[in-house]
């Protein structure tokens, strides 16, 4: 549910910390004026006063209510301006919007997460939730790919994850231009190494479109059902309200019906990997 009565009006939030994750990626810690809760996988619109607005899925735990974090890759105009923000600046947030991950469907299952690049942001939020409820899942396997070791974000989180029972983490880089003791290659290479009961498993894919495409194809080859592959679709979400039309994907509006879809839901639509 939105926190403001006027659906277009942002809630102000103070930027209390900025974390450099990689040369192109920063995490912003935001403290909203009003309590702002979200479900993992739902997204917000971040407003820069007078400049513009862009959608982000919070990367922080949905269990934390007094602040939230978003992880932003410098990609275009608004994200470039976000990278110029300073601690103490005030931004606006609207939301939360969309549907989160249907966690109850994951109970009792082996959860496979395939992530790449900045697609780790929503996954981090999901991981926090999975850790908090780990007794409800059989196991969690997280395969993460980045371009180079420098581009790998949330480095300290990997150490933590590796110490958590039921959690397995595998990482790859496309190119090891500095010492790297894990896999070299694309993220799909990691899928050859995991042991998973595909019939009692589901897969979550979040990353750049090219990774979503190759990842989904490999998962299908492995035997995953189309209804068990959850994809986070990247679209130009503007209003977040299912009204402005910018994120139309066939008869879906990604901001309202997504951003998470099963492959089965969207496979018939034209140009989904664009």
């Amino acid at each position: 549910m939105p926190v403001t009565e006027n659906i277009y009006e942002p809630v102000k939030a103070k930027l209390t910390n900025i974390i450099d994750e990689s040369p192109l990626i920063k995490t912003l810690v935001l403290v909203p004026e009003k309590e702002f809760s979200f479900k993992t996988g739902e997204f917000i619109e971040l407003t820069l006063n007078g400049i513009g607005e862009a959608p982000f899925t919070p990367s922080s735990s949905p269990l934390v209510k007094d602040k939230l974090e978003i992880t932003v890759m410098k990609a275009g105009y608004v994200t470039g301006k976000i990278h110029q923000l300073n601690i103490g600046d005030v931004v606006g947030i609207r939301g939360p919007f969309g549907k989160g991950y249907p966690l109850e469907k994951f109970y009792g299952k082996e959860v496979l997460i395939v992530g790449g690049g900045c697609g780790f942001a929503p996954i981090r939020s999901l991981l926090y939730k999975l850790i908090a409820e780990k007794e409800k899942f059989k196991k969690v396997i997280f395969c993460y790919g980045s371009k180079t070791p420098k581009d790998c974000i949330y480095k300290t989180l990997f150490k933590e994850l590796r110490n958590i029972e039921k959690f397995q983490v595998l990482r790859s880089v496309d190119m090891a231009d500095e010492p790297w003791d894990e896999t070299i290659g694309v993220v799909t290479v990691l899928l050859d190494q995991i042991k998973i009961d595909i019939n009692n498993s589901l897969a979550i894919v979040c990353g750049p479109p090219i990774m979503m495409k190759f990842g989904t194809i490999r998962l299908l080859e492995m035997g995953y059902r189309e209804t068990d592959i959850y994809l986070s679709m990247e679209k130009n979400m503007s209003c977040g309200l299912g009204k402005c039309g910018h994120c139309m994907l066939g008869d879906y509006l990604v901001c309202k019906d997504g951003p998470v879809f099963t492959y089965n839901e969207i496979k018939g639509l034209p140009d989904i990997w664009r």
Binding site: K147, D174, G185, V186, T188, V189, I210, M211, F214
Partner: peptide
């Protein structure tokens, strides 16, 4: 297939 993916990346 992986090499193509890597190439595009």
């Amino acid at each position: 297939s992986d090499t193509r993916f890597q190439l595009i990346n």
